[in-house]
């Protein structure tokens, strides 16, 4: 037996991978939320076919495996002559994937604001923009926030898939450590604990928000 054990260096290496995971998540959530807000408002307020067409296009991102999307964009970027880093590609794919889900969350939340409330705002002399920013969005936030937190955590977990295009995030870094130490269970246990520590408190906070805002 080789007695290579998991050293502090290995754990630090994995924590660095966890940093990459969080960085990917940050860009994916930011891009996904900005796009999702725009698309979602469009979906909720635009009439008829533009809204349906946008919905159908975004549905493609939710009906094709994320890994396949990553592979496709990774293969297509050089065809277009774009010289993008694997990290950029990972962020782009995760952000569009997140946007597809975020759009539906925003749409459902905006549509959950009762129409009479909006009409009342308008009849008080508020402009369309006033109504949107002062009435609709604050009310929609309460409906949408738990789902949005779930989406952010989902993106954090799905970011593991970018290991396929060579980004050394948490899961890939643990795989590298496993290759060296030959202790898969221990190393994966540490990786799982890191994921859990990131995800669990936020998931709990989301559940708390949901309970608190539903009671009122």
């Amino acid at each position: 037996m080789f007695d290579a054990t998991v050293s502090l260096q290995d754990v630090l290496f994995m924590l660095h991978g966890a940093g990459i995971t969080l960085l990917l998540t940050f860009w994916a959530v930011l891009g996904g939320t900005v796009l999702g807000l725009g698309f979602g408002l469009l979906r909720a307020t635009a009439p008829g076919w533009p809204s349906l067409a946008l919905g159908a296009v975004l549905d493609v991102f939710r009906s094709v495996p994320l890994l396949i999307q990553i592979i496709l964009v990774n293969a297509f970027a050089p065809i277009l002559g774009l010289d993008l880093s694997a990290f950029t590609i990972g962020c782009i794919v995760l952000a569009t994937y997140g946007a597809a889900y975020c759009t539906e969350i925003v749409r459902a939340s905006v549509l959950a604001v009762p129409l009479p409330t909006r009409r009342a705002a308008r009849s008080l002399g508020m402009t369309w923009w006033d109504d949107l920013t002062a009435i609709v969005l604050p009310m929609a936030l309460r409906v949408g926030l738990p789902g949005w937190i779930g989406l952010a955590l989902g993106l954090m977990k799905d970011s593991a898939l970018v290991l396929w295009i060579g980004i050394i995030e948490l899961l890939r870094s643990s795989q590298i450590v496993i290759t060296r130490t030959q202790q898969p269970l221990l190393v994966l246990g540490i990786a799982g604990a890191i994921y859990f520590v990131i995800s669990f408190p936020i998931a709990r906070a989301g559940a708390w928000f949901e309970r608190r805002w539903h009671d009122q």
């Binding site: 955590l153 977990k157 593991a160 898939l161 899961l171 994966l188 990786a191 799982g192 994921y195 995800s199």
Partner: peptide, 9 residues
């Protein structure tokens, strides 16, 4: 555990 770690993991 199942809900707070990635499926790939």
């Amino acid at each position: 555990f199942g809900r707070n770690t990635p499926g790939l993991f």
